[in-house]
Design a protein around this nucleic acid. Structure first.
Length: 695
DNA sequence: GTCAGAAGGTTTTTT
DNA sequence: ACCTTCTGAC
């Protein structure tokens, strides 16, 4: 057996994680601790040293980018790793459903509805509701699915709205009739399939003897349930994650999954990776000093053997204009790779304007919404209707675009005939043609015939040509090419060309079509190409996960902006604190934190107090740069130390969760034994300090 | 069907 | 402030 050289390059904890066998393994991998390296080495090691069949390994990630990186790096170590099943949770779900379509009650040509499509489908059911209202229900339905809940389940944890169950039920019934799935179904349906079909469950468990999960802290309840179905006592399950980096709660991520992993999976071994290879000591100390204030964490402390490093700087500025100047000054005075991080996308504008004015190239991450553009959604709808003639959402989008006289009344006629045609919209439209006016009937038949001909032509040629000629035949190409504004029209045509080009790798077959649609729906990350070599990156903190930069500027550290929201929901504040932790641990060498006294928000100037996160950093860990407007108010107070016990007459015993000055008052947040969390101003509310011996 | 003006609402967003 | 969505008039 060939020696596995990669082992030599690992630190002891990393090596232990790679070599571990037996029961479930939880790898708590701090930021920059070489997590991907461990997981890919583990895959390579299993194959090479244990002779494991690569096809019996399933590695699950959350993003396509992470999956691609894992595939590349494990294959570089061990070529046979190319046969490992490395996919995102959703793509694995889609694969499983496609493979077991009949058992899952689906047609193999099913397609996937994105969030917009979900709202459109709700709209076909509730014609008179406002889009905004339906958007709200779409979010609730999606959240319910994140928690593995179906319409009949107790939805009170999602919303107290009594309408939700009914709307969710109608939505799901209609979605199932159409035969498509939404993102939530890509997890939930596989769970249900594995639960109910013993043969498929056994077969799947027999195939995947090794299951590895990356970024486990971002998993939701439904994904946890999928893991439970995939694994039995003989499956080797290894999850890697960092509870301190769980920042997608609003999307249903459940940090408790990782906090309670060892209870859910008995005999779990926990290995902590705490050596950081990215940042300087002072940056790590700052990061730890803040995230330490979170109560709900497993606890680990990053360290580095990198010597030295400059002290992070806190810049207290007057307003956002000064903030922009401050950042640009840093960049021009000392060029180098720099990322400007912000909490909300709206903050990027001023930076962008200033960078353009200064002639500094930059790249902005995450604002490209290619697949949400009108012309692309139109082309997608055409393909989706081809793949599934029951797809009402796609049908409605394109049947009268460009206008061909098929209006509301015609569509009602079609809808009435739908059930007699097994939901097939082309058949129903054809049948409806006879009942319509001459003109509407004729164009309805023309539309049906184009779509039918296209469907029959599947089986030969390239999908790119298929797509282009169909979009042209339907008149959509021309519609977009001849819009009022020639510049807009030009870019629409370019986008359509790019879309068509993306399809060129696929054959024009039913299978190729389904595969292409799946790729498009599940992988919308598209690099904003062009200025990839720019030294300056503008990016939301959420988007920085997994990235690193020489110099990082975290902007907008103000109460109300970051953390956003007030003290109402302590879990929310803890999530924001984790986001802060993610943000600052992106920095390799230099870290700057900026906070403004005034900020224009929603059109008015607000006076803001520095973020509590700044007050949580011990003064000796930062260099304070001010422009004379303000100093950090209060600072860390030791009057109610975090973690100390207090007693309240009504709530009983509790532990101090946070304590800070908001400028005028001391604000103390307490988590009580009952689980309740409340915020007090000790100036008004008596809070008795209790010494450790008393309880 | 289109367009201007009003009204409304505003985090983050892997899939 | 700004952007999307709704509305009513043509």
């Amino acid at each position: 057996m060939a020696a596995f050289a990669e082992l030599e390059r690992l630190n002891p904890a990393q090596r232990e994680a790679v070599l571990h066998t037996g029961g479930p393994l939880l790898i708590l991998a701090g930021a920059g601790s070489g997590k991907t390296r461990v997981i890919t080495a583990k895959i390579a090691y299993l194959i090479r040293e244990h002779g494991v069949d690569p096809r019996s390994i399933l590695a699950v990630t959350f993003t396509n980018k992470a999956a691609a990186e894992m595939r590349a790096r494990s294959s570089a170590m061990e070529p046979a790793a190319a046969d490992v099943m490395i996919r995102t949770f959703h793509s694995f779900g889609a694969w499983l459903l496609r493979r077991n379509a009949a058992a899952a009650g689906l047609d193999r040509g099913y397609s996937i509805y994105d969030d917009d499509d979900v709202v459109s489908l709700l709209r076909t059911i509730y014609r008179d509701e406002h889009r905004g209202t339906l958007g709200g229900y779409a979010r609730l339905i999606s959240r319910a699915k994140d928690y593995g809940l179906r319409p009949g389940d107790d939805l009170s944890a999602i919303s107290s709205d009594p309408e939700l169950a009914g709307i969710y039920g109608s939505y799901q019934r209609r979605l199932d009739e159409i035969g498509n799935v939404d993102f939530g179904d890509l997890i939930l349906k596989p769970v249900e399939l594995l639960r109910s079909d013993e043969a498929i469950r056994r077969r799947t468990r027999q195939r995947y003897r090794f299951v590895l999960v990356d970024e486990y802290q971002d998993s939701n309840v439904a994904q946890y349930e999928l893991l439970k179905q995939l694994c039995d006592e003989t499956t080797y399950l290894c999850v890697v994650g960092d509870d301190d980096q769980s920042i997608y709660r609003f999307r249903g991520a459940e940090v408790r999954n990782i906090l309670t992993f060892s209870e859910s999976f008995p005999r779990t071994t926990i290995i902590k990776l705490e050596q950081n290879y990215r940042s300087t000591g002072p940056i790590l100390e700052l990061a730890s000093s803040v995230v330490r204030h979170n109560l709900g964490r497993l606890g680990k402390t990053l360290w580095t053997d990198r010597a030295g490093g400059q002290e992070p700087t806190v810049a207290l500025l007057r307003d956002q204009d000064e903030e922009v100047d401050y950042c640009l000054d840093l960049i021009t005075r000392e060029p180098g790779e720099t990322a400007i991080l912000y909490r909300t996308n709206a903050q990027s504008r001023l930076f962008e304007q200033a960078l353009i004015r200064a002639g500094i190239p930059y790249r902005i991450v995450g604002s490209l919404r290619f697949y949400e553009r009108e012309e692309i959604k139109d082309a997608l709808a055409v393909l989706k209707l081809c793949a599934n003639p029951r797809d009402e959402v796609s049908f409605r989008r394109i049947v009268n675009k460009p206008a061909r006289g098929i209006g509301t009344k015609s569509l009602e006629t079609v809808a009435d005939l739908l059930s007699g045609c097994a939901g097939d919209l082309l058949e129903a439209t054809e049948a409806a043609a006879a009942e319509l006016s001459r003109k509407a009937g004729a164009s309805a038949l023309a539309f049906v015939s184009i779509m039918r001909r296209a469907r029959q032509s599947l089986g030969r040629g390239k999908l790119s040509e298929f797509t282009e000629s169909l979009v042209r035949e339907l008149g959509l190409w021309e519609l977009h090419a001849e819009g009022r504004d020639p510049i807009v029209a030009g870019s629409k045509v370019e986008n359509l060309e790019e879309f068509v080009n993306a399809a060129s790798l696929y054959p024009a077959t039913g299978e190729g079509l389904a595969e292409f649609l799946e790729l498009v729906e599940l992988d919308r990350s598209r690099e904003a190409d062009e200025t990839l070599d720019a030294e300056v990156t503008l990016i939301t903190m959420h988007n920085t996960k997994g990235l690193e930069f020489d110099r990082v500027i975290v902007t907008g550290l103000e109460e109300g902006l970051f953390p956003r929201g007030g003290d109402e929901d302590p879990d929310e504040v803890e999530e924001e604190r984790r986001l802060f932790y993610v943000a600052v641990t992106r920095a390799r060498d230099a870290l700057y934190l900026t906070s403004c006294s005034y900020r224009r928000l929603h059109g008015r100037v607000m006076e803001l107090v520095p973020s509590r996160f700044l007050n949580e950093i011990p003064a000796e860990l930062v260099h304070e740069a001010t422009t004379g407007h303000r100093r950090l108010t209060g600072g860390v107070t030791d009057e109610y130390p975090v973690g100390s016990a207090v007693y309240h007459d009504d709530y009983g015993m509790g532990v101090v969760a946070s304590s800070r000055h908001n400028g005028t008052d001391l604000v103390v947040q307490v988590r009580f034994e009952t689980g309740r969390v409340a915020t007090f101003l000790p100036r008004y509310t008596p809070l008795e300090k209790v010494s450790g011996d008393d309880w």
